[in-house]
């Protein structure tokens, strides 16, 4: 893992590591929510923590931010050992939870000022910062409206603003676009990218594969409380670079048709990809015309044949063994659209 090559100071502290976690474990009753998790996040990095619902993402994040006790392991944030004293580094971190935790009875402006005061900011400083963030997040006009009356997307944006009110060098984002409409999710992703560009270290948990692929520099796949792979997105995608994938939209995708295609195209991996769809994958370019002819000979009507770029989803499925369908169900549970936009 790249993190192991980072430099250490003479005191043994990692100079360019913002978050280091070793052997982190958490047991809830009989359920091992987190099981020996190790990772390191570099300063200024946008690190993705990707896994299906119930994989242990939020449990890990809660331990990192001091909202849950750890059963085993160590946590170090900005070189501060937070294993026994999670409060030690709370001034350095901002946290945006998966659901809003602001006061519905306060206005957007009051909520931000209140959160700023929790970090010891003085009145003039916190009011100026609140106004700056309201403008940056496009919420200036709603500043004096009660937070309880905000739309879901506005609530999400204000919750992110509250998380960065004290300008923390490290930001934890838990499922930031879940349940947000497509336009709102896109706007939030732009805000996250902007924070990253400004040098903030970001730890992002998500079950939206496309979101992780689009935003993150490195990603850890977590399944059933264990990290199964951690790598840079480019490295994760490397094995798929020379892979060629064709997707056919057809009138029938039954097993007989799939088998016939596989026989006609040696070296290709052919599989049904949902109703009316066949996926053909090979390590060399695939000729479309013979396959279309073959399908037509079998009485199958081909309405579309297109080349698709292998995605991080393919890598995730390969590495974790979790079907993309299962993640899709998670997405649907999570809300409409956010990750796919």
């Amino acid at each position: 893992m790249a993190a192991s090559t980072t430099s250490r100071s003479t005191t043994g502290l990692d100079l360019d590591i913002a978050i280091r976690v070793e052997g982190l474990s958490k047991l809830y009753g009989d359920v091992q929510a987190v099981d020996g998790v190790d990772f390191a996040v570099r300063r200024g990095e946008l690190f993705g923590f990707l896994g299906p619902n119930g994989a242990g993402k939020t449990s890990t994040l809660n331990m990192l931010t001091g909202l849950a006790r750890l059963d085993a392991g160590t946590i170090s944030i900005d070189g501060i050992d937070c294993t026994r004293n999670p409060k030690a580094a709370q001034h350095l971190i901002g946290v945006v939870p998966d659901e809003s935790n602001l006061y519905p009875e306060l206005t957007g402006f009051e909520n931000l000022c209140f959160c700023a005061a929790l970090y010891g900011m003085r009145r003039r400083e916190r009011e100026a910062r609140a106004r700056e963030l309201l403008a940056q997040f496009g919420l200036a006009e709603a500043a004096d409206r009660g937070f309880g009356g905000y739309s879901r997307g506005m609530k999400r944006k204000l919750t992110i603003a509250a998380g960065i009110i004290h300008d923390p060098p490290i930001l934890f984002l838990d499922e930031p676009t879940t349940g947000i409409d497509v336009a709102g999710a896109r706007q939030i992703r732009q805000l996250i990218a902007g924070l990253h560009d400004a040098g903030t270290t970001i730890f992002l948990t998500t079950h939206y594969i496309e979101e992780a692929e689009r935003l993150c520099e490195r990603i850890a796949f977590i399944v059933r409380g264990r990290i199964v792979r951690t790598d840079a997105v480019a490295e994760l995608m490397q094995p798929t670079r020379d892979r060629h994938v064709l997707l056919f939209a057809v009138s029938s995708s039954d097993a007989g048709i799939v088998e016939a295609l596989a026989e006609a195209c040696p070296g290709c991996r052919v599989a049904g990809a949902g109703p009316g769809r066949i996926r053909v994958e090979a390590d060399a370019p695939i000729l479309i015309a013979p396959l279309v002819r073959l399908l037509e000979e079998h009485g199958v009507e081909v309405t579309e044949a297109r080349q698709v770029r292998p995605s991080l989803e393919d890598v995730f499925v390969e590495v974790t063994g979790i079907e993309a369908g299962a993640m899709q169900k998670d997405k649907e549970k999570g809300g409409k659209g956010g990750g796919a936009a």
């Binding site: 909202l67 709370q90 946290v95 939870p97 809003s100 929790l118 010891g120 509250a162």
Partner: peptide, 11 residues
Amino acid sequence: GRTFERLLLAP
């Protein structure tokens, strides 16, 4: 309502 969580996150 999870607003208490916000307080627990404060330093």
